[in-house]
Each structure stands twice: as C-alpha cells, then as structure tokens.
Nucleic acid binder design. Structure first.
Lengths: 191, 191
DNA sequence: ACCTCATTTGAACAGTGGTCAAATAATAAT
DNA sequence: ATTATTATTTGACCACTGTTCAAATGAGGT
C-alpha cells in the first residue's frame, strides 16, 4: 500500500536523534514512544529499530553527545581570563547551568536508574568527572583534596537533581545557585 | 467461574500497600504492574482500583508513610544526649543512612519525576524538610543561615542520589559519607 | 426469603516496546 | 536493458501496560 521513501530522504541515525531529542526534551524519556518518534519523521516505528537496537540505545546516543557538550563547556570556562576564584565560581555555576538547561539529558546522564538504559552507559560519566575534578583541583591552587572535590561535585549534583525534579529553569534559581556555590567555596579561599 | 473472597480476607488498603511495597522495593515503580500486585494478593487487578484510584495514588500512600519514618528518625537523633556538633554530625549522617538504607523509599520521596505521581505529592516533603531545617538551625547555635541549611540539605541529597543510582549500601560508603558531612560542616564550628 | 449494596471480577480499550517476514527500491552485475 | 543483490522500510503481530466498567457475587439486615 505505502511505498518506501526516496533515497535522499533515507532515514539516518542523525534524523532519528534530532526528532527524538526534541520529543525527549519536551516529554521526558518515559513518555516518548518509538511510534511517536517515527510519526514525527513520517516513518513507521519498525524503521527506527533498523538504526537503533532499542529505545535505550537511541537515548544513549543522545547522552554521549551531551557529555561532550558538558566537557566542552568546562574547557571553555577553564580557559577564560579570570582570577582562579572567579573561574572556579564560574565552573561550579556552569555545571548547574548545564544541568538545568539540559534537564532531560542530565536526567539520562546521571539519574536514570533503569537497567535497560544503564547497560548502555559506559565510561562517559567517569571521563567527564575526571575533567571536572582536574580543573577544579588546579584552580583551587591545590587547596582542595580529592575528597573535597568529590563532595563539591555531589553537592552540585544535589542542587541540579532537586530543581530538575521540580522542573524549574536555571534562570528561576540563579540566586539560589550562586548562594550554593558560595557555600561550597566558603573556607577554601578564606573569603 | 471464580467467586469473590470470603469476608475476613476482604482486600484492604493495608494489604495492597504491603504487597506493593515489597514489589516496588525489589523492582522499582516503573517495573511493577497493577496486575503483578493483584496476583501477589490473589485478587484480580480490577479490585485494586476499588481501593486506590490509580497506581500513582497507591504509590503516594506509601510515600507518606516513609516521610513519617524519616521524621521519626530525625526527632530521635535530635533527642540524643550529645554535644551540638556531634548531634549535627549524627543528623546529617543519619539523613544519608536513611536514604541509602531505604533506597526505593527515598526514590519515591525525592526522585520520581513522573507527573502522575507528582500530582499526588503534597505537603509531606515540605513538612519533613521544615523539621530538618529547624533541627539543624537550633543545633548550629544560630550560626547557620536558612540559605546555608538549604545548601547542606541539597548537598546531602546529592550524596544519597548519586550512590543510590549505583545501588550501593550505606555501609559501602560510610567513610565517604563521614567525609562529606565533615566537608559540609567545615567552618561552621571553626574546626 | 428477599433485598441491598459494598466488593470483586474479567472483558475490553488504547496504548507500549520489540520482532520479523515480506515488500520495496536503489545499486551492482550481466 | 535486464537481472540479481542488498539495504531499507513496512505493518501485522506478540505480550505487555494502566484504566474503565457492566456484570456477578455474597455478606448482613429486614
């Protein structure tokens, strides 16, 4: 009855990921179906399974991209021309900003406990944390121990997690975020 | 064909909640179906809908109980005979212990983002946090501001959230938890 | 014996993720 | 130009989900 699409509109992983990202951001992982994604693209849901083995793998492909984005942002902030203290502030705040401005992705990167999805998570979170830790360590002028950096990370993570659950945007909690960062840095620069 | 159960075994909210709790703890909210709960009880799934309007409401009934448990623990710790500093440590550590020893519960209380479920969440988390904040405030000998207490809470939340995702038990991360608490209290008691 | 009514059943509905034989079309080989 | 091959897409199908609801059930009151 229906005919397959012409060659130039052949379905690609990129196309699927673009459509999926939009839907995931609006509705969240659990509330997006493979059929919805396919419909958005004008294909049948079966076609997606040709390009991705399942929903989790499709989602994880998106996640990997976003870990890359977070790393990019960290590097960018670390290269800014600011005093260490300001740079450190910017990085901690930048982490929160990233988390709240990419809520669906943060959720997948750090929150989804779903076994299906977790099986696809590999080294990405670890690598990204390593970068975070090293950057913070050097900016702290060696005053922060590994353990303290880890505590800072967990504390930022708690902030993001909490407000992400309440679906608030970064702008809505900017003051709170700044105060949280100050709290975490208090004592380090004896300010 | 099948007949309704005899009067003394009439299905109650309590019975349903007990069966549901066990399943939720083992499998998590998303992977427990109403049919599974009903099967566990030897009833048809329709019967549950007579006692709970839907899955989310059933789940929330469980949540309320767990908030009660956490409050109970907080009060208990606050009444211990310890120096303020030690008491404060015990409370922060107690919070982490509760979170990691009741992972499914904590997940329900603070992590589930599902709209269906969230619609049933009312004042419980707020009330429990109020208790936490007041206790910490008085124990800090008025040295902690509202904002700082909130940051401490978020930082503890981050700790629990992270290790909960990796399904580690409290004992496995005890040293880490102690270090995290010390980090958060650093400066407050000028230690 | 009859009635009432809270409780339970199970069929039905619209949706889900995932599978797969069959259909299709672009490309390579003849 | 015709044929064979191969990558891609389709849609019926499966086993499942949460939810609804008319109908059946049976305990308690009269």
């Amino acid at each position: 009855m229906s005919s397959r699409k012409s060659a130039q509109r052949d379905l690609t992983r990129e196309m699927i990921m673009d459509a999926a990202r939009d839907l995931f951001i609006v509705k969240g992982y659990q509330h997006v179906s493979m059929r919805q994604i396919a419909k958005e693209l004008g294909y049948s849901h079966g076609a997606i399974y040709y390009h991705f083995t399942n929903k989790a793998e499709l989602f994880y492909a998106l996640v990997q991209k976003h870990f890359g984005m977070l790393e990019h942002k960290l590097i960018e902030l670390a290269q800014a021309t600011l005093a260490p203290r300001e740079k450190l502030e910017a990085i901690l705040l930048g982490y929160i900003e990233f988390g709240l401005n990419h809520q669906s992705h943060y959720e997948i990167m750090f929150l989804i406990k779903d076994e299906e999805v977790r099986d696809y998570l590999n080294q990405s979170p670890i690598e990204t944390y390593e970068l975070f830790a090293q950057t913070v360590h050097s900016l702290s002028e060696k005053q922060l121990s590994i353990q303290e950096i880890w505590s800072i990370f967990l504390s930022l993570h708690g902030f993001v997690t909490h407000y992400l659950r309440h679906v608030l945007q970064y702008e809505d909690v900017l003051d709170m975020a700044k105060a949280h960062v100050q709290f975490l840095l208090k004592g380090i620069f004896q300010s």
